[in-house]
Amino acid sequence: MAKNITLAIDEDLLDKMRVLAAMRRTSVNAMVRDFFEHEVKREATQANRAEAWGRLFEAADNNAERRSRRLGDEAPLFDRELFYEEVMRERGLL
């Protein structure tokens, strides 16, 4: 169900938006609605990316800790090639 909202917009800006909307063969209302939808989707995408990166870094930290315990203090904390192999195995590509 659509809801009406009230916005306070400078008159000059509103005139420019009306011209722009006419050039795009749409309405100011549709442009505002599209802008809101775009911003909500963008925010959700950023949150999903941040969550995915968080999981990746957590997995890397956990793998590094397990490897450090397994190999002792002499081994480097992070081995890029070993991490790559572990990720590829998890994805069933190796």
Rank of each mutant, 00 (worst) to 15 (best):
A59E: 10
R18T: 07
R42L: 10
H38D: 15
M1I: 03
F83I: 09
T45E: 12
R70K: 11
E65H: 06
D15F: 12
A64F: 00
G54R: 02
E74P: 05
E74Y: 10
P76H: 01
D12S: 12
R70Y: 04
A64N: 00
R42H: 06
H38V: 08
K3E: 13
E43A: 09
P76K: 07
A60W: 14
A52P: 01
Q46D: 09
E81R: 12
R91D: 04
W53E: 15
E11V: 08
Y84L: 11
M1W: 03
D73T: 15
W53Y: 14
N62G: 14
Y84A: 13
M17H: 05
G92V: 01
R42G: 05
V87D: 10
R24Y: 05
D12L: 12
T45S: 06
E86F: 01
M23A: 13
L7H: 03
A2I: 15
W53Q: 14
F36P: 00
R89W: 03
I5D: 02
F57T: 14
K16S: 08
V19T: 13
R91T: 09
F36E: 07
L20Y: 08
E65R: 15
G92T: 00
R91N: 11
I9V: 11
A50F: 08
V28N: 02
W53M: 15
K3S: 10
E39A: 13
A21R: 00
M1T: 08
V19Y: 14
R55P: 01
E58P: 04
A64P: 00
A22T: 07
